[in-house]
Amino acid sequence: MVINHPLLGPRDASEFVYLGDASLMDRPNWLDKDAGQKFYKYQYLRDNPHLEHKELWFHEQGDRSWLIVTRNISTHEILTVELAKKFFDKGV
């Protein structure tokens, strides 16, 4: 696989470490009344979508950016690659 890094251009997937669903960026507030339930869902429950999937990749053998890669998990086609920070600002 090749991931088109927003700053560094196309890089081989072997430079990256995969973490998982990008919803991990959406960490609940600890002060919420039902924080326990929310953290339980955040930590353990994942959607299993067909086709498009937003996922977290870490450019460990590179510039150490965390990236949000939108990938078609059926064809492995990569649709967009964004810096996690930029993605955070937009809202998950």
């Binding site: 991990l24 960490r27 150490r64 950016s65 810096l83 996690a84 920070k85 955070f88």
Partner: peptide
């Protein structure tokens, strides 16, 4: 050492940017 650094970068960039 490697895992913690990765985790801290995750916290820095993804949780507390």
């Amino acid at each position: 050492a490697v895992n913690v650094f990765r985790h801290l970068e995750f916290c820095r960039q993804c949780l507390y940017p």
